[in-house]
Structure formats: structure tokens, C-alpha cells
Design a protein around this nucleic acid. Structure first.
Lengths: 151, 151
DNA sequence: GTTTAGATTGTACTTATTACAATATTGTAG
DNA sequence: CTACAATATTGTAATAAGTACAATCTAAAC
């Protein structure tokens, strides 16, 4: 079970080891899923998709490991409207745009010095989250088109 | 029941009317609670505190009206770590600092032009949320003191 | 090969929130 | 004032996301 995945998962394996997390089969799968489908999935989505090919996977394992990844700084967690948590890889700091129509989360760049601060008004910053909410370009264009057709 | 509260709740009453929300007794109580205890309470906290003096109040009423207030732009909702939602009055745009130790939410000012944008990379912005997480000044000082005593 | 620490699994539980139907209140037209 | 419609509130039941925990499994260390 293990060595079959040395090749494919090599980089994820290294990433986990560098953070002192044992690179178990399940952890590699979870990490791989998030890295390859860069669509900010929820725990449930990750669970459903991986358990298609690995039916023995437990929901708890997914939750446990997502929490570990967040604590160790591999992933960041994003809270949407609907009391659900979504996950994203931590790369260059960036902001998120949450579309209220299609529920997609879109990465956006912010060239502001916000991320360089390590304290604000005396409070020690460990994490910064910037989230925009509204209507994404796609949904906005769809609406526009619909309006035009009516006229 | 109604006119007893004309005096005290006058400004909240006006605020609700200006947003086309009927200023019911319960709504005034909820709004008053949030405005007077500026500590970003959760629905549960609001419910518990108001229902001490108004035992007939329903949890559902609190949730319903908080949602209405958010939709109408009177309140903003803040998602914390623990899948709970907290509420804050919308005044001058500001950011929030969530202390991972004491769980307080502290208002912080940001003098950045972030709030002036109404679109980013083509996506229409309706709302911006900036949230810092870390250790607040208070908790940080406590930790410092403890460390000093040990030495 | 045995031991031990850590990981995974599955079930039961908690917590925040919503759905919904019944009841109550308010505003309005006759 | 009374009747009616519209809206608000209430309480219960349901849902959904996440956690606690005990049992089982795995893998590395001796």
C-alpha cells in the first residue's frame, strides 16, 4: 500500500515530513485532493470524493487531518455563509472572494501591506483573513445577459 | 407594551423604520442588546440575556431577526473558529481581531483603501471582511507576566 | 516477535441553525 | 368597532457540521 505511492505523492510526502506529520496513506490522499482540485473544498466534499475510491475512509479521519493541517500551517480554513468550513492551501498570502450566487470561492490578489504586519493596535497577529462577498464576474455576466434579453 | 418603549427605543425604532422593518418589541430588544453591549454577541448569548427579562422570547425569533438585520445591512455577521456566528453593528467599516485565547472579538481600524473598492478583478463586491486572529494585547501581557515570574 | 505510540475507524453526541406549522399581533378597510 | 389580511412570534422537530471517544489497526523501535 505504501510504496506504490512514493512516486506520485513524493512532494506531498516531503511537505508533511517537513512539518513533522507522518505521511500516512489517508493524509496523502487528502492533501493530494486539495492540491489538485484547487476549488476550496469542504470536509464533506473531500470525504465524499476520496471515499469513492477508498470506501474504508472515515469522515473523522478527514476532519482530524484537516485540523492538523490547519494547525501546522499547511492549510488555511475559510468560513462561508452557511456555517461550513472550506480549505485552501497556504501559498502566497491572498484574499478570497465568496460568490453569494454560485457559492464558489475565488482567489484574489491583494497588493496591500496588510500581510506584512505582525501586530495591530498591540494585538499579536497570527493569521489574516480577507474575504470579499458579492457576485462573481461569471454570475454577474449571466445576470446582465438575462436583463438584455428581456428588453 | 408598545408605547412604554417609545422613549428608550426611539433611535432604534427610527433605524428599523428607515430600513422598512417593522419595529416590533422583540426586534427593538435584540437591536438594543447589540447596540448597548458592543461585544459582538452570538445568537445564543443574545437569546439567553434577553429571555431573562422576557421569558416568552423564542430562539427562532432571535435567529430570524438577526438574519433580517444582516440582509438589510444593519448588522454584519462574523464567523469565528468554532462554527458560530457573531454579530456587529455596521458603522464605519472596520476590521475584527479574534483572540484565540479569550475568544473576544475586538474592533480594529484599518486605514487602507480596501473598503472603497466596489469590485475586484471583475467581481462585484457587496461586503468586505477583514479578520485577524492571534493573541490580544491583554492575553499577551498575561503570558509575558507568567513567563517573568518563572524566571 | 513483542511492545508501544500513533493513526484510523465508526458510533454517538453536541452545537448552531433552519423548516414549518400553529398561534398571536398589528394595520387597514368597511 | 369589527373583520380580514399580512406579518411576527413561538415551539417543536429536523438538519448539518463538527467533535468525543473507545475500539481496532498499523508501523516503527526495541
Amino acid at each position: 500500500m505504501t510504496d506504490r505511492h512514493y512516486g506520485v505523492h513524493g512532494e506531498f510526502r516531503d511537505l508533511l515530513c517537513s512539518k513533522n506529520i507522518k505521511p500516512s496513506y489517508q493524509r496523502l490522499l487528502i492533501l493530494e485532493y486539495i492540491m489538485k482540485n484547487k476549488n476550496h473544498p469542504s470536509a464533506e466534499i473531500i470525504f465524499k470524493n476520496i471515499s469513492r475510491s477508498v470506501p474504508t475512509l472515515s469522515r473523522t479521519t478527514v476532519y482530524n487531518n484537516l485540523n492538523i493541517f490547519v494547525r501546522k500551517g499547511i492549510l488555511s480554513s475559510i468560513k462561508t455563509n452557511k456555517s461550513e468550513t472550506r480549505y485552501d492551501i497556504i501559498e502566497i498570502p491572498h484574499a478570497h472572494f465568496y460568490c453569494l450566487q454560485c457559492k464558489r470561492i475565488i482567489d484574489v490578489d491583494l497588493k496591500i501591506p496588510l500581510y506584512r504586519k505582525n501586530s495591530i493596535q498591540g494585538h499579536k497577529i497570527e493569521e489574516v483573513q480577507v474575504q470579499f462577498r458579492g457576485t462573481c464576474r461569471n454570475c454577474f455576466n449571466k445576470k446582465e445577459k438575462k436583463t438584455k434579453n428581456v428588453l
